[in-house]
């Protein structure tokens, strides 16, 4: 077994054990959010057709993943920063990105049940069928890894954990209200459309829609843009955790 793989598995065990007390609760909360999202759509849109429901529900994975990656993760990593966790973990003889990989694996596991349940219940509740392609696996993985890496960028890039916490508060608002996930992009003002042409949120939603349904989206462009943001998150995280004070 290579040293990197051995380190990864050992850290995965460490992280899994560390998260064990809150892992079931985290998953339960994510599942409840997913179910709440599916059912809550009917309150937003009383006259919801199954076509619109399909569009909205297949955007749910993006919302769930971004809530975990850009909100929950920076808050938990921020707490760990405050407690000096990284002063210890970074002193161990392991490449730091391996630690991130192990930690990210746990976050993927936290996100996964909510994503699957929101899709399954959403389809059944709102009466539409999914058209799941094999590309949904790399698609959803790419969304999750991008979300997690961008979350690390916020968590380690903010000068203080408190600032990371504040950023996450703003992001909740932006993701829920000002992103073309809960409604079509055409409903946004032009200037916000221009911004979303660069941000990954719209493309993440396209990735899940394009690989889980027969909705017509530019899947190639979505992979490229989300992939680019994933690379940005990777490079930023790499340099942020490698730097010395």
């Amino acid at each position: 077994m290579s040293r990197a793989l051995r380190s990864y598995l050992l850290l995965l065990k460490w992280q899994a054990l560390s998260q064990k007390p809150i892992l079931p609760l985290s998953m339960a909360v994510q599942i409840m959010i997913a179910i709440g999202f599916v059912i809550g759509l009917s309150f937003f849109y009383p006259e919801l057709s199954s076509t619109i429901a399909k569009y909205l529900i297949t955007g749910a994975p993006t919302i769930i993943i971004l809530m975990i990656g850009l909100v929950l993760l920076p808050q938990i990593v921020g707490m760990a920063r405050k407690e000096g966790t990284f002063d210890y973990m970074w002193s161990l003889p392991i490449p730091r990105m391996i630690y991130i990989a192990a930690d990210a694996t746990i976050w993927v596991l936290v996100a996964l049940p909510g994503v699957i349940i929101s899709l399954a219940i959403g389809a059944a509740y709102h009466g539409f069928s999914l058209d799941i392609s094999l590309l949904s696996i790399p698609g959803l993985l790419l969304i999750t890894i991008s979300g997690v890496l961008l979350g690390y960028t916020i968590a380690h890039g903010a000068p203080k954990p408190e600032i990371a916490h504040l950023i996450t508060q703003v992001l909740v608002f932006v993701i829920m209200i000002f992103s073309p996930v809960m409604y079509p992009v055409e409903q946004l003002p032009n200037w916000l459309v221009q911004i979303h042409n660069v941000l990954p949120i719209k493309y993440m939603a396209d990735l899940s829609r394009g690989t889980l349904t027969d909705l017509d989206v530019n899947l190639g462009l979505a992979f490229i843009v989300v992939g680019a943001w994933c690379a940005v998150g990777f490079v930023a995280t790499y340099f942020l955790i490698k730097r010395r004070r």
């Binding site: 054990l17 560390s18 407690e83 210890y88 161990l92």
Partner: peptide, 20 residues
């Protein structure tokens, strides 16, 4: 990296072992 391979370290802050 050489330092981390060759130094064992007990931090002044508490270690992150809450779940272990």
């Amino acid at each position: 990296d050489y330092a981390r391979q060759n130094c064992s370290f007990q931090s002044q802050t508490q270690v992150p072992i809450a779940g272990l």
